[in-house]
């Protein structure tokens, strides 16, 4: 169990990256969704023991991580949002080096384990290539492999699917889902799809505050009957935008397909039909309104 209590982080400026967030993250996959600059990475780095908070506490399985970040490092798998490797090492060497540092042991030896991990992220074919020759997606997969190493009790993955093609993303989803069965996995992303396919629970963070602590189905369910979709001409867009909360607007064959939120009891504009709410609708509404958009979130 990961418990975050009244966490505040203020950068010089001052910039309040976290404004007193509290949450309890149980075992399993937990998604942290939020727009860019919402404070996700700050929160992740604090939990990973890489950043000192201004105030507040973080406990993992009862141990105070803020007071002694060494406690979390023994049981942590961490994939940062932004990372690199020693460019002159091969993927296999790089991974083995990190396995050694993490104190990982395996029955077949580290070489065998490294090969297995690379296989799981579909990097076996590039194991002997130097990291500096890796593409962005390959580097991301190597990052995932190192995060998985050591069977960590807490796995923090920050924007893990950035750079992965659809096939690799699916592979990674499966891997994460498997891992989440017996540990806490904290997944931070601004890609709604990642959350919707993986996380039984999620929180939405905006402007350094949690605006929702919910489940994807609950978030969607609260919007039932309030999402409408229609095709509109360009001239009407401004009018629609003024009168309704727009959750999506896409240009399709010269016309705009727009999804809007109409509060319960309200009337949609002409040409709009009721639509199935998506998690993205819920996220956008919550992020736009800091949790007050549909009254479905649990403000933290």
């Amino acid at each position: 169990m990961l418990e975050i209590t009244d966490l505040v982080k203020i950068y010089p400026g001052p910039v309040a990256a976290l404004q007193g967030v509290s949450i309890e993250v149980p075992k399993g996959m937990f998604g942290l969704l939020g727009p860019n600059g919402a404070g996700k990475t700050t929160l992740m780095r604090i939990v990973a023991g890489l950043l000192e908070p201004t105030s507040g506490t973080v406990h993992f399985n009862g141990e105070d991580i803020v007071a002694d970040p060494r406690l979390i490092r023994r049981q942590l798998g961490y994939l940062p949002q932004d990372f690199g490797f020693y460019p002159h090492l091969t993927g296999e060497s790089m991974l083995r080096f990190l396995l050694v540092l993490k104190g990982v042991q395996a029955p077949g030896g580290l070489k065998h384990l490294a090969a297995e991990l690379l296989d799981r992220v579909n990097l076996s074919y590039a194991a002997k290539r130097k990291v500096k020759g890796y593409s962005g997606g390959m580097r991301q997969r190597l990052g995932i492999a190192q995060a998985l190493a050591g069977d960590p009790g807490l796995l923090i993955v920050d924007e893990p699917t950035a750079g992965l093609d659809p096939e690799e993303r699916l592979r990674f989803y499966r891997l994460l889902a498997e891992l989440a069965e017996d540990r806490t996995v904290l997944l931070s992303t601004h890609i709604v799809e990642d959350i919707s396919v993986l996380c039984p629970r999620m929180a939405i963070i905006s402007n350094g505050r949690f605006v929702a602590d919910t489940t994807p189905s609950e978030a969607r369910g609260r919007l039932a009957g309030t999402i409408f979709q229609g095709m509109v001409e360009r001239e009407r867009l401004a009018e629609i935008d003024r009168d309704f909360r727009v959750t999506q607007g896409i240009l399709v064959e010269g016309r705009h397909r727009v999804r809007i939120h109409v509060p319960q009891g309200g009337a949609p504009p002409d040409g709009f039909d009721a639509a199935e709410p998506t998690l993205e609708d819920a996220y956008l509404l919550l992020a736009q309104t800091n949790g007050e958009g549909n009254g479905s979130g649990t403000s933290s």
């Binding site: 023991g49 940062p80 690199g84 490797f85 540092l101 190192q146």
Partner: peptide, 11 residues
């Protein structure tokens, strides 16, 4: 090299 976080997160 941008490896600080991964490196520092090791035990």
């Amino acid at each position: 090299r941008g490896m600080h976080d991964i490196f520092s997160a090791t035990p």
